[in-house]
């Protein structure tokens, strides 16, 4: 019986956009896409796909589905994951969901995952690199009523259980959970693999299944956001170099430490 892993992925504005190009529409509370800078798949999500692929490398008989919720442009992120080696792609594209918060997102993804059942493992990134919230993964686990292990650096499936190395501040712990389960992965897992050309070409030909909220049996009107973005702005970060003055080294160090404490850095 094939193991079925579902990876949740997202397309995000390039996190390496030069700071000078990063702009925000404060009225609309949205990030203005930088001209000429294409969005990219959220890095932790592709690491999630990498984790799934490693399980397939080890076990062989593993089906990997990729699920995303967002506008049509999110197809690119799905295609990238298919090129990495995932089997099927699903996009939930519904204009009514474009303003979804993480709660609604989790609701929709959970419904999609249930539609794809049976499944054994859900993998998400530890957080999406746009909002950096890190909530959808654990919320999915709660919605699906299954165990959750967060911030994994290694994910294995053994004897019907998932064995995860979970990152701690000064090391890691090995946690075991019965399947099905949700695991969120961190960059400690390693770089996502580079797609082989044949798979890129195959992925280009693969159909991505598109669903609306209704296809999942959801009524968008009943999906209420639980948080509202009241403001979105760019904090003052202009680097103004302060040359630390002082007659002696002691004085300079004292002054430097004072500054660092003021800035709450130490």
């Amino acid at each position: 019986m094939a193991l079925h892993i579902i990876c949740c992925v997202k397309q995000v504005p390039d996190p390496e956009t030069p700071a000078s190009q990063f702009r925000v529409d404060e009225a609309a509370k949205k990030v203005i896409p930088a001209p000429g800078i294409a969005p990219v798949p959220s890095q932790f999500d592709t690491i999630g796909v990498e984790a799934a692929l490693r399980i397939r490398d080890a076990l062989g008989d593993v089906k990997i589905s990729v699920v995303s919720m967002g506008p049509d442009s999110f197809r690119d992120a799905i295609k990238h994951c298919l090129a990495m080696g995932a089997d099927d792609g699903y996009l939930i594209n519904d204009p009514a969901l474009h303003e979804a918060d993480h709660w609604v997102t989790a609701q929709v993804l959970a419904a999609a995952i249930q539609k794809l059942a049976p499944f054994d493992l859900v993998i998400t990134g530890r957080q999406a690199v746009d909002w950096d919230m890190g909530v959808v993964g654990p919320t999915l686990a709660e919605l699906l009523g299954i165990p959750c292990v967060t911030i994994a650096k290694d994910v294995k499936v053994q004897d019907g259980k998932v064995v995860v190395e979970r990152v701690l501040l000064d090391g890691f712990e090995t946690v075991e959970a019965p399947l099905p389960a949700v695991v969120t992965v961190s960059n400690e897992l390693g770089e996502p693999r580079y797609p082989q050309l044949r798979q890129i070409m195959m992925a280009a030909r693969k159909q991505v299944t598109v669903w609306t909220a209704a296809d999942l049996g959801l009524n968008p009107a009943q999906l209420q956001n639980r948080v509202n973005v009241e403001a979105l702005y760019i904090p003052e970060t202009k680097v103004e170099t302060e040359f630390i003055e002082g007659d002696t080294v002691e004085e300079k160090v004292d002054r430097l430490l004072q500054r660092l404490r003021e800035a709450k850095l130490i």
């Binding site: 800078i37 990219v40 770089e191 693999r193 580079y194 797609p195 082989q196 044949r198």
Partner: peptide, 20 residues
């Protein structure tokens, strides 16, 4: 293209070229 086997820095460069 067949093996996706390359030095880490080459892979990072190709990803960078592809995405940006």
């Amino acid at each position: 293209m067949e093996q996706a086997s390359m030095p880490e820095t080459a892979q990072a460069t190709l990803m960078q070229l592809e995405q940006r």
